[in-house]
């Protein structure tokens, strides 16, 4: 028993060590990639985000008369077809087809020659190689299509994930200060016509919180005075499919990708981010979190249907 226990414990330790190594490796890779991409993507997104938001507004203006779920379905189908076609153009279809054939052949070999154990092992090994090869062939389309797709999804997110505050509805606001000082600088949320401050500021842990209540429909601005610096944050009050910017973030590309509507906060600002806690949109189809599921399901179904039309292998 002691030997078995020792083996189990040693095995567990080894597995944990491997997991640690893998995580360290991931973090190192991320840091490395960030160093390379940041100088390119940060300014690029500064240009692309306003364009994408403008295009998003145009698309949703066209879809505005239709119910929200119809709009999401249409966009998903179109995105599925467009990305399918783009995938065809950007990928090495011949190589993918050959690799997929190899995968299928080895799966069939497992079935046809199941009594030959050496065939099982050889087929497994070849399968693994083919799968890795297929991943390699995916790299190019991923690199080319990744950014446009993420920008597109972010545009959908700002419309489906949250909804604007309704008049007389309350929401929390959080301002994060980027300061090493223990004592925060004086921070003030200026009063406005569109909302009333019900509570706050409540400072703590480098953050300051308020509770506001919306009063007037429309797109408004929250103005914060932070140690003599003025920083603004958009506040949307109203009905319908208005896009909302939940958070105004620093000019770092991963954050810019997720919050594309407002200009990034300059990196030398005392403010790291300002967040309005909008309520989530409620729907099992196009509501918070569900919309992305619906999008993937519909777009993939569309791709499945149109793949034979475009003769795409994936």
């Amino acid at each position: 028993m002691s030997t078995i226990n020792w083996l189990l414990l040693s095995g567990g330790d080894a597995a944990l060590w491997l997991l640690d190594c893998a995580l360290d490796m991931f973090l190192w890779l991320f840091a490395t990639v960030d160093v390379v991409l940041a100088p390119v993507l940060t300014p690029l997104l500064g240009v692309l985000n306003p364009i994408a938001t403008f295009l998003g507004d145009a698309v949703y203006a066209v879809l505005d008369p239709a119910p929200v779920w119809v709009g999401l379905a249409v966009i998903s189908v179109v995105a599925g077809v467009v990305m399918l076609f783009a995938f065809k153009v950007t990928s090495n279809q011949k190589a993918i087809a050959k690799t997929k054939d190899s995968i299928k052949a080895n799966l069939l070999a497992l079935k046809l020659y199941r009594d030959e154990l050496h065939v099982t092992f050889i087929a497994q090994w070849r399968l693994l190689k083919s799968i890795l090869k297929l991943q390699w062939y995916m790299l190019k389309p991923v690199i080319i299509l990744g950014l446009p797709m993420l920008i597109g999804i972010a545009q959908m997110g700002i419309r489906y994930q949250w909804r604007a505050l309704k008049p007389n509805e309350a929401a929390q606001i959080k301002l994060v200060v980027d300061s090493q000082e223990e004592v925060l600088p004086p921070i003030e949320l200026q009063a406005g016509d569109a909302f009333e401050v019900e509570a706050g500021p409540v400072p703590g842990g480098g953050e300051v919180w308020w509770l506001i209540r919306a009063t007037e429909p429309g797109k408004h601005s929250l103005t914060f005075l932070v140690g003599g610096e003025t920083v603004e944050k958009q506040l949307v009050v109203g009905e319908g499919l208005d896009r909302v910017s939940a958070e105004r973030v620093r000019d770092r590309w991963p954050l810019q990708l997720l919050h594309p509507v407002e200009r990034p906060i300059p990196s030398d600002s005392l403010v790291a981010s300002i967040e309005v806690f909008y309520p989530g949109r409620e729907s099992w189809f196009h509501g918070a979190d569900y919309w992305i599921l619906s999008f993937f399901v519909i777009s993939m179904l569309a791709a499945l249907v149109f793949a034979p039309v475009f003769k795409v292998r994936f």
Binding site: G80, M83, P141, G146, F296, F314
Partner: peptide, 26 residues
């Protein structure tokens, strides 16, 4: 986003159905 940077395979679901199916099928 993080995974996209680390492994193209996991991000395929985010770059369209073609790649999504590819990763799914593999």
């Amino acid at each position: 986003l993080v995974l996209m940077l680390l492994s193209e395979g996991s991000a395929q679901a985010y770059i369209g159905p073609g790649a999504g199916f590819a990763v799914g099928s593999t």
